[in-house]
Design a protein around this nucleic acid. Sequence first.
DNA 1: CCGAGATAGTTAATATGTTAAGTAAAACTG
DNA 2: CAGTTTTACTTAACATATTAACTATCTCGG
Lengths: 137, 137
Amino acid sequence: MALLRTREAVVQRFRVVLSQYGLTEQQWRILRALEGREGLEISLLAEQCQIQLPSMTGILKRMESRGLTRRKANHADGRSILIALTVESKALVERIKPQIVEVYAEIERILGRRKLEQLYALLEELENGLGTASEPC
Amino acid sequence: MALLRTREAVVQRFRVVLSQYGLTEQQWRILRALEGREGLEISLLAEQCQIQLPSMTGILKRMESRGLTRRKANHADGRSILIALTVESKALVERIKPQIVEVYAEIERILGRRKLEQLYALLEELENGLGTASEPC
DNA sequence: CCGAGATAGTTAATATGTTAAGTAAAACTG
DNA sequence: CAGTTTTACTTAACATATTAACTATCTCGG
């Protein structure tokens, strides 16, 4: 519950920025993950953005219809598809990024750098502990 | 993202238990919040469970149809409705609780009590900082 | 080269999340 | 006390999450 509440509070800050551009947090995560790359497979994109594959299908469909992403064939593997930014979405990312950076800065102001790093470390430790333990199947 | 990933890892542990009983995490949060009380208003329930009111409508509808919760009129205020457990759901909570307690114990084993308390403190500090700051409307 | 099994994505069905708008009962105000 | 505002919920519309099943490729051992 503590994780849930805190994450909600954090995400809310991002949402007030992103909703001005009609973007959801998930869509923003995808844009950021694609930034600076020429094309990323959907499964890798999903993994980096912590979005499940079935959700990706719908999200990408909406993003493509808005011209935020485009598909490129992956000649090396006919199963997978490469997703990339468009000219417009590259510009959009550049426009939004400063405001997002400001939100991160606000978070760092609230906790201070040391506590923030401490928090990251604790979260990672817990995640790793849960990820490995008691799944010996 | 760190918050998201860690929360996902934690929730996953609860889900493997709850799904055996056909419960979602949200439904479990509601059951726990109602435990030991004679009736709670939907808005208070929503607040305690970190679930928005529109979601509550649907969740409660499903839970009621399964006999997990029941509605009682609030004679003090005709607008609100009191939600309470049923005989069956009280028994269900008792049956599930031990397994959930075990998950919490696992989390504490992973981090240790001190780090866990540290984590709680950091999360709360961040949440409070975000909750108050820069909303001077 | 072939067929079993592994991969990458999509589809489907159900449950929530998120915002905005609508409804009915209270509380407030002039 | 009528009119306005607030409060507690519900409805509606759209976006995701979750799990399982399905399709098209790929990989590999034989």
